[in-house]
Nucleic acid binder design. Structure first.
Lengths: 239, 239
DNA sequence: TTAATATATTAACCAAAGATTAACAACGAT
DNA sequence: ATCGTTGTTAATCTTTGGTTAATATATTAA
């Protein structure tokens, strides 16, 4: 099989170190885009489709965590590795909360980084299946555009959905008339499954129910202890 | 929500450190099995079904890598985290080669370990969502969807079943026209076989009988001292 | 036939899960 | 500095699910 090179976004403010690392990765068959700071990193991220992001934590203007959060808003899947000079616990924990896939303290061995990269990309590769290609859904008389986060009822003015509302509704729509396990939404959208995220999710279910009220035939049902089910009754054949 | 605790196999030869770590993980809602060496670790691994393995690298007789390789032979999926006192490059690389999911140098911060564990288990959880066990059964004129916990009679409105009702009926259906031993349901569904769970099960049998009343040809019979039998009479061939 | 054991059925009770609204905190955009 | 958006936590209430108790009926062995 023709192996198309994996694309890496490298955000590192130290020009020397950045260049060296970029070269090293390039030699090892990765296609590397280098950004000098968080701002530039985010711009480049939006313009392309990366398989992995490597972010320096300590950067002027916008640090790695902030950048990571922005990236996560756009893309829930892409693996993120943090580079940091200091190894303070708070920083590491913060990184994992933001959804880091790994963490590396500078100075580090480049071969180790390479191994981690390979391990992570391979992991993601095996996960990727039911993925984010689809972003438009017909839900009874509603139409959801999950890219624009618009929910439109018939021909009325679209309602703007918040990121979480949007993801949750999308996840429900992907399982239309079938069980959408609680755990799935929690781990995928909230990235953690505990009492509080679970309560939070309930709040969002309530919000969505309110939005969906205008169509009698659309309902979000609960399956006690399991999850939710988006049902659409009286469904007419779509041409 | 039915939060079933994740099982962790911890293999660590230092008894003090092992006990402390085990306690720490237990407090954080993991079910931990501690093994004192590679040999014991592998035995325990084979006997149970773990969600994660944490292996010390430096152990007498059988080191962590060797154990990891054996574990990988049995199970390609289970995440493995290595603990090591030394952080020599070769070791780290060796770990990743064996298929480690992460690597941690001793001494390490336990909160960091906890974060890593959660991140890794969550990752795996989202991978394993392709659950295609059988969940639909035809029982006379009834149809059971045990995923949605719906029992439908002919074309009427589905009845919602509680988790226990659902599991019990499913178990009966799996043994249709055959003996479903009391003990089986008790150990599988109630996870305990004693006087009270047995009474509880009787209650559920009564509930199911009530649900199944509409179809004359469907009955749950008792086999004294043995168990129950879901019989379907006058069965017509399904095309 | 009777005593002992097993099963049936209904109701009472309690705990866990979910629904809903409101208060609050974080943060970006004026 | 203020405002609007977003998301989390809290408080309260409702629903659901499961066990236990109480009582009645069956079955079996002696």
């Amino acid at each position: 099989m023709e192996e198309t090179h994996k694309k890496i976004l490298l955000v590192e403010d130290d020009p020397n170190f950045g260049a060296v690392l970029k070269d090293y990765l390039s030699i090892n068959d990765f296609e590397v885009t280098l950004a000098k700071n968080g701002m530039e990193g985010f711009e480049k991220f939006k313009k392309d489709n990366f398989d992995l992001c490597i972010l320096d934590v300590m950067m002027p203007y916008k640090d790695g965590y902030t950048l990571a959060r922005e990236i996560r808003e756009k893309n829930k899947e892409v693996p993120i590795i943090f580079l940091t000079a200091k190894s303070m616990k708070e920083d590491v924990l913060k990184g994992y909360k933001v959804g880091a896939d790994d963490y590396l303290n500078k100075p580090f061995d480049s071969e180790v980084l390479l191994m981690k990269i390979k391990a992570i990309i391979q992991r993601k590769a095996s996960e990727t299946k039911t993925d984010n290609a689809k972003f438009e859904f017909q839900i009874g008389r509603f139409h959801l555009n999950s890219k624009l986060r618009f929910l439109t009822f018939d021909k009325e003015e679209p309602i703007k959905l918040s990121p979480k509302e949007n993801e949750l509704l999308k996840m429900l729509a992907l399982h239309e008339n079938d069980l959408m396990p609680r755990e799935l939404a929690l781990t995928k959208i909230w990235r953690d499954d505990n009492y509080f995220t679970s309560r939070s999710m309930d709040v969002y279910i309530a919000k969505l129910r309110k939005y969906l009220k205008p169509d009698e035939d659309v309902e979000i049902l609960n399956i006690h202890g399991e999850g939710f089910r988006l049902v659409v009754k009286n469904k007419v054949e779509e041409k």
